[in-house]
């Protein structure tokens, strides 16, 4: 569906400081890819939610970041991978208000609403959450809202 346009960057997620690094790197990347301020903020916030999820529920892991392009529009693809116990009930985890740790339970479901594409692959050996956000809203924004 989309083609990568540059090198993939890998960031470790193992501490508070790493969450901070994720936010700074994603922000810089989004700026470089021509994201507007609101799009940038949404993506950075989604990344922060998912990175914290990786840290708190997955016991740490990593984030892969790459720039993608489709029909001339630039986007950023982020994949968060952990080797934690996996998510038992994905539907429930995506529902608002659900939390298995601390927090308002907005993590996964909230992050999904901030990006154009959201995908979870979870199994007992670990979980990968992949998100893609585009610099400009796709032609039919209703089409991407599930």
């Amino acid at each position: 569906m989309s083609t990568p346009v540059d090198e993939t960057v890998r960031l470790r997620i193992g501490s508070d400081a790493d969450l901070s690094a994720v936010r700074l790197q994603v922000r810089a990347k989004a700026q470089a890819a021509g994201f507007g301020l609101v799009q940038q903020t949404k993506l950075v916030t989604a990344a922060s939610e998912l990175a914290r999820n990786t840290l708190v529920h997955g016991g740490g892991g990593e984030m892969e970041m790459s720039e993608v392009a489709q029909a001339g529009v630039h986007g950023i693809k982020l994949a968060f991978t952990d080797s934690g116990p996996g998510i038992a009930d994905v539907e429930q985890a995506l529902a608002d208000g659900y939390t298995s740790g601390n927090g308002l339970g907005m993590g996964l479901g909230g992050a999904r609403r901030l990006v154009h594409h959201f995908d979870i692959d979870t199994r007992s050996q670990g979980t990968t959450v992949t998100i893609v956000s585009w610099a400009t809203t796709p032609v039919d924004p209703r089409a991407v809202l599930r």
Binding site: L37, T41, K42, T45, D96, M106, L114
Partner: peptide, 13 residues
């Protein structure tokens, strides 16, 4: 900031 407010609301907060 505006972008922060929009994002928080979209997040559901």
């Amino acid at each position: 900031r505006p972008a922060v407010a929009i994002t928080l609301v979209e997040l559901g907060l």
